[in-house]
Simulated assay, not measured.
Amino acid sequence: MTDPAFAPVLEAVRATGWTSSVLDLSGAADKAAFLERCAVSLELPDWFGHNWDALADCLRDLSWLPVSRGRLLLVSGWSDFARERPGDWATAREILTEAETEWAARGAQGFAVLLTTH
């Protein structure tokens, strides 16, 4: 369930023509749980292989999603995962950052990641 505190942000994003997804990592204990949360929250395609390379591929090629002006990925509940799995968190952050950078360079469609403190 999405934290109600995020509702104004998500509404503002949608008002601009962007779509949004919330990736709640609360209770995610390992890489497998992180990737499963991504698969569900982002509605990743059936070909998603539940590994880091497949996540990077999905985020670089969003053709499996309906057309949108841009996309916001709001990541919440990440601090415990980051503390307990620092190596996996570093990899996840690298993939998310690279996706943001690549989409910004293309200029055609936005892709942004917002890490919340909740």
Rank of each mutant, 00 (worst) to 15 (best):
Ser68His: 07
Leu42Lys: 00
Arg106Ile: 05
Phe81Gly: 00
Phe34His: 11
Ala5Gln: 11
Thr19Tyr: 03
Glu43Cys: 00
Val40Phe: 13
Ala99Lys: 06
Trp47Tyr: 06
Asp80Phe: 12
Ser76Cys: 13
Ala12Asp: 11
Ala5His: 09
Lys31Leu: 14
Gly87Trp: 05
Thr19Ser: 01
Leu44Met: 14
Glu94Thr: 08
Ala39Glu: 15
Arg60Asn: 15
Phe111His: 05
Thr97Asn: 14
His50Trp: 12
Ser21Glu: 12
Glu84Asp: 15
Arg14Ile: 00
Thr117Lys: 15
Ala15Cys: 03
Val9Gly: 04
Pro45Met: 03
Glu36Pro: 00
Leu10Arg: 09
Phe6Val: 08
Arg85Ser: 06
Asp53Cys: 07
Trp103Val: 02
Ala90Phe: 13
Ala90Ile: 07
Thr101Tyr: 03
Asp88Trp: 09
Glu98Ile: 02
Gly17Asn: 11
Val75Trp: 10
Leu65Asn: 05
Pro4Lys: 05
Leu73Thr: 07
Trp18Cys: 01
Leu42Asp: 06
Ala15Gly: 04
Ser41Thr: 10
Gly70Met: 01
Pro8Ser: 07
Glu100Leu: 00
Ser63Ile: 00
Leu74Glu: 05
Phe111Gly: 02
Arg106Trp: 15
Trp103Phe: 03
Gly70Lys: 00
Ala82Trp: 04
Arg14Glu: 15
Gly49Thr: 07
Phe111Asn: 05
Gly70His: 02
Trp64Ser: 01
Ser21His: 12
Asp61Val: 01
Asp88Tyr: 10
Val113Leu: 02
Val75Asp: 11
Ile95Cys: 08
Leu74Cys: 08
Ala112Trp: 14
Ser63Asp: 12
Ser20Tyr: 11
Ile95Pro: 08
Arg69Ser: 09
Ala5Phe: 06
Glu11Gly: 06
Thr101Trp: 11
Ala56Pro: 01
Val67Asp: 15
Val22Ser: 02
Cys38Leu: 04
Glu94Gln: 15
Ala7Trp: 06
Val75Lys: 04
Glu102Trp: 14
Leu74Tyr: 12
Lys31Thr: 14
Leu23Asn: 05
Trp52Arg: 08
Glu43Tyr: 01
Gly110Pro: 04
Ser21Leu: 00
Pro8Thr: 02
Thr16Gln: 11
Phe81Ala: 01
Glu36Thr: 14
Asp80Ala: 13
Leu96Lys: 05
Leu23Ile: 04
Arg83Asp: 13
Val13Gly: 00
Ser26Gln: 10
Ala108Phe: 06
Asp61Arg: 11
Pro45His: 03
Ser26Phe: 09
Ser21Ala: 11
Trp89Met: 14
Thr16Asp: 07
Ser26Asn: 12
Ala108Gln: 15
Pro66Lys: 03
Arg106Leu: 07
Ala39Lys: 15
Ser76Phe: 10
Arg93Phe: 05
Val9Phe: 14
Gln109Ser: 09
Ser20Val: 02
Ala92Tyr: 13
Arg60Ala: 14
